[in-house]
C-alpha cells in the first residue's frame, strides 16, 4: 500500500472515529468540552488526511465514509427507538395565509424581492468578486470562476437573509449589494 492510500484509509478511519466520539459526547448528560473537541478534532483531522492523501478527491471519499458511518449509527438509533406519542410543534411559519389573512400581495412582493431581486444582487456581487479578483492578480480564469461560484452562493445566502428580514432590512440588504457591484456594473472596473 502506498503512502497516499494509507493516508486515505487513515482519513476514513478518523471520520468513522469522529462519528463514534461525537455520538458518545452528545449522549452525555452534561456538555463535555473535551469530548466535543475530540470529536470535532477527529473530523478536522479526517479532512486534512483526506486532502493530503489525494486533494479534493481524498476529502470527498473521506467525507462519504464519515457520512456512511453516521447513517449506520443513526439506523441503530432509529431501530432501538421506543414508540412514543410526544406532540410535535405547531409553530406558525407564516408561509400561507390562514383564514382571515389576505396577505397574498405582501407575499408576492417578498417573492419578487427574494428571487429576481436576489438574483440581480447576486450577479452584482459576482461581478464585484470577479473584478476584485482581477485587481488582486487572481488571473482571468480564477476571476471568472470566482464569479461563477459567487452567484449561487451569494443568492442562497441572500435568499435566507432576505426572508428573515422585515421590508426595510430587505431594502438595505439589496442596496448594499447594488453599491458593492456598482463600480463594476456602471463603472469601468473589472474590464
Amino acid at each position: 500500500m502506498n503512502g497516499g492510500a494509507a493516508l486515505l484509509w487513515l482519513a476514513c478511519g478518523l471520520g468513522v472515529a469522529a462519528v463514534g466520539v461525537l455520538r458518545f459526547a452528545w449522549s452525555l448528560p452534561h456538555r463535555s468540552a473535551a469530548w466535543n473537541s475530540a470529536g470535532w478534532a477527529a473530523l478536522a483531522a479526517c479532512v486534512l488526511c483526506g486532502g493530503w492523501s489525494a486533494g479534493a478527491w481524498g476529502v470527498s471519499v473521506a467525507a462519504l465514509c464519515t457520512m456512511a458511518a453516521a447513517f449506520a449509527v443513526l439506523a441503530v438509533a432509529g431501530w432501538r427507538a421506543p414508540p412514543g406519542k410526544a406532540t410535535g410543534s405547531n409553530r406558525r411559519m407564516g408561509m400561507l395565509p390562514e383564514p382571515g389573512e389576505p396577505h397574498i400581495g405582501r407575499r408576492l412582493v417578498t417573492f419578487l424581492l427574494v428571487m429576481p431581486g436576489g438574483l440581480l444582487a447576486a450577479l452584482a456581487i459576482a461581478l464585484a468578486v470577479r473584478g476584485s479578483g482581477l485587481a488582486l492578480g487572481w488571473g482571468e480564469a480564477n476571476a471568472n470562476v470566482g464569479g461563477l461560484f459567487a452567484v449561487p452562493l451569494a443568492w442562497g445566502v441572500l435568499c435566507t437573509i432576505l426572508l428573515m428580514q422585515a421590508r426595510r432590512g430587505q431594502a438595505i440588504t439589496l442596496l448594499v449589494c447594488g453599491v458593492a457591484g456598482a463600480p463594476f456594473i456602471v463603472g469601468g472596473m473589472g474590464a
Partner: peptide
C-alpha cells in the same frame, strides 16, 4: 441532537 432519532414517535415528532 444529531443522533436522536425517535423513529416510532407519532404526532409529528
Amino acid at each position: 441532537d444529531a443522533f436522536r432519532l425517535r423513529a416510532r414517535h407519532r404526532g409529528g415528532v
